[in-house]
């Protein structure tokens, strides 16, 4: 797989994503500067976490206007897998590539700690190798992860199986105590109607090696790699 990791001014998890994809999973990675306007020869695009443009105005709002974004939109519209992690998720929301909006955490503070999320849908390239109901342990690190959608939109998202992850207890129960940020219905990740664009607040790249306490995040990347490889034409002979 050849994945592109988009670097906005203020991205701070770009190097971590590159490390996991290249160093841990042995994939080919292109570092894509936000000022570029084309995404060529890529199998997947990742928008990493951080504070793009300092999160000034609103988290992700200025980054959503970056020169690279039309190319990201075109890539997504062509069915290409796009993964937004944390700030990358916020950018996708602001760019309108994913439904909903992000509010400040209800606890009013940045939250950095491990949480559990439950896989709600396996129809995305990032979760097709997982089980529905599977519980992953991943760290969160954000101040604005309180997912919101107006009632009608929320109903649409839920009805069309666009909720991909929910915060849950270690045993998989989706309970209010497991919600770290006040997110509507414990939503931790949503996808586009087609399923090929996914945004999630927890950081899979920080949980992809045993030495860091969890390897659950790697499952998301491995699922993506398997999806990309499966789409390749089988060589004849």
């Amino acid at each position: 797989m050849r994945a592109g990791v988009v670097i906005f001014p203020g991205s701070n998890c770009d190097r971590d994503c590159v490390h996991v994809l290249r160093g841990v999973l042995g994939q080919d990675v292109a570092e894509v500067w936000h000022g570029e306007t084309a995404l060529e020869g890529l199998d997947a695009v990742i928008l990493p976490g951080g504070f793009a443009y300092g999160d000034y105005l609103r988290a992700g709002a200025v980054a959503a206007t970056s020169p690279i974004m039309p190319a990201v939109r075109a890539f997504a519209q062509a069915g290409g897998p796009v993964l937004g992690i944390c700030n990358g998720f916020q950018v996708l929301l602001e760019a309108g590539l994913l439904p909903g909006a992000m509010l400040r955490n209800h606890v009013q503070k940045f939250q950095c700690r491990p949480v559990h999320i439950r896989v709600e849908s396996t129809r995305t390239p990032f979760t097709r190798a997982l089980r529905e109901g599977q519980v992953l342990r991943l760290p969160i690190a954000h101040g604005e992860g309180n997912y919101y959608a107006p009632p009608a939109l929320l109903a649409t998202i839920q009805d069309s199986e666009q909720v991909v992850f929910r915060y849950c207890a270690p045993d998989g129960r989706v309970v209010p105590e497991a919600n770290p940020n006040g997110s509507l219905n414990n939503i931790a990740g949503v996808c586009s109607p087609g399923g090929n664009v996914l945004g999630l607040m927890p950081h899979p790249e920080r949980a992809s090696e045993a030495i860091l306490g969890s390897e659950d995040g790697r499952l998301i990347f491995e699922s993506l790699i398997a999806f990309v490889e499966s789409r390749r034409p089988v060589p004849v002979g």
């Binding site: 998890c13 190097r15 490390h19 503070k109 939250q111 950095c112 700690r113 690190a141 030495i211 860091l212």
Partner: peptide, 14 residues
């Protein structure tokens, strides 16, 4: 206090 600090970025924190 420390949960308000990002202590896991840079994937080094053991």
């Amino acid at each position: 206090v420390y949960e308000q600090y990002d202590h896991s970025v840079q994937v080094r924190t053991v």
